[in-house]
Every structure is written in structure tokens, then in C-alpha cells.
């Protein structure tokens, strides 16, 4: 997607945090020869796609930075891999009603949970449409149309037991 600088609704800190979040969620793998979701091409796709949800995602990323500073004395982007993973996992645990002691805090947790799900959805969407990732999954890096795909017809004789059993529905009253 082409863009100009003023199109970007994220601050530099939010951009770095989002890319760090993506890389922490889906890291590179040498075993499978795939990049992480913080790869420059994929990250650009993520940032462009996330613009539509900039308000919610921006607020969530700011909160991640505040939490990281409160717990570790550093912004999210500067945490080590284990601390990043722990913070992401925690954000994706919805608080149970038993835990809710403060309505405002509970509302913040729900907003954070919702924003994290949106971020993960965008990250997965952008990551798994990358040509390199698709090839690593033995997928052709192309859109389904116009070539389509082959799907085997299947063995329709499997229906014989169902036919032998007879109808399972009621006749409509006359």
C-alpha cells in the first residue's frame, strides 16, 4: 500500500512496539527457513493494515509500554524475549468476573484483551500471506482465483448406510 508520512497515525514508539509485539508473537525460525513477523516487508504490511484500528491499537501499545516500565523499568521494545512473551500471554488472559474488583480497571482489561486480539489477527493475516511463509507451508504463493484448487470428489458409496436407514425427518402436516 502506498502511503505518505502524514498517513501514519502511529507514533514512532507505537510503531516500534507493534513491530516488537509482532516479532515476539511469531519469531523467525531457521529450522523452517521463515522470517519473523518483524521482518521489514511483513512489518510494513502490518503497520499499513493496522491503521484502520489505530485508536484502539495505539492505546493498547501505550499501555504495554507503561506496564513494561512499571514491571521491568524498560519499554516493551527493550524487554528480553521471555519478558515480552510473558507480557503478551498475560494480555490474552481475560480477567474472570471473580477478579474484578474495580470497574474501571476491568474495563481497561477488556479493552486491552480486545485490542490484543485485533493485533494478533492483523499480524497473522499479514504473516501468513507472505510469499516466503506460504512457500514454507508448501502453498503456491498466489491468490486462489483464477486457477482454483483440486479437491477429490470422495466415495459417495459411504452414503449407503444412511440411505438404508430411511428418512429422519417428519412429514409436514397437511
Amino acid at each position: 500500500m502506498d502511503s505518505i508520512a502524514t498517513d501514519n497515525p502511529f507514533t514512532a514508539d507505537q510503531e516500534r512496539a507493534l513491530i516488537a509485539f509482532a516479532g515476539a508473537a511469531i519469531p523467525a525460525s531457521s529450522a523452517y527457513a521463515v522470517p519473523g513477523a518483524d521482518d521489514p516487508l511483513i512489518a510494513a504490511d502490518i503497520l499499513a493494515t493496522a491503521r484502520r484500528y489505530a485508536d484502539a491499537i495505539g492505546a493498547a501499545l501505550d499501555r504495554e509500554d507503561r506496564l513494561a516500565i512499571a514491571r521491568h523499568g524498560a519499554k516493551f521494545v527493550d524487554l528480553d524475549a521471555a519478558a515480552k512473551k510473558s507480557q503478551i500471554e498475560r494480555a490474552n488472559q481475560p480477567r474472570s468476573s471473580d477478579d474484578a474488583s474495580d470497574d474501571a480497571e476491568d474495563e481497561l482489561d477488556r479493552a486491552r484483551f480486545s485490542a490484543h486480539r485485533t493485533m494478533l489477527s492483523i499480524i497473522a493475516q499479514c504473516y501468513y500471506r507472505d510469499d516466503r511463509v506460504m512457500r514454507s507451508l508448501d502453498m503456491e504463493p498466489r491468490s486462489p482465483f483464477p486457477e482454483g484448487f483440486e479437491v477429490e470428489e470422495g466415495d459417495w458409496s459411504l452414503l449407503e448406510p444412511v440411505r438404508r436407514r430411511g428418512k429422519v425427518y417428519r412429514d409436514a402436516p397437511r
Binding site: 523452517y32 521463515v34 512473551k85 494478533l120
Partner: peptide, 21 residues
Amino acid sequence: PVATALTGMFSGRIPRGEGHH
């Protein structure tokens, strides 16, 4: 591929970070 990732991550079958792939 995307729905697989989301089903897996939201249900806890696919971790974020190490072990994802």
C-alpha cells in the same frame, strides 16, 4: 493459514514466541 493460526493461538494450541512454528 490465517484461521489456523488464530484458532491455534486463541485456544492455546499455538504459543506466541518460541514453539510457534
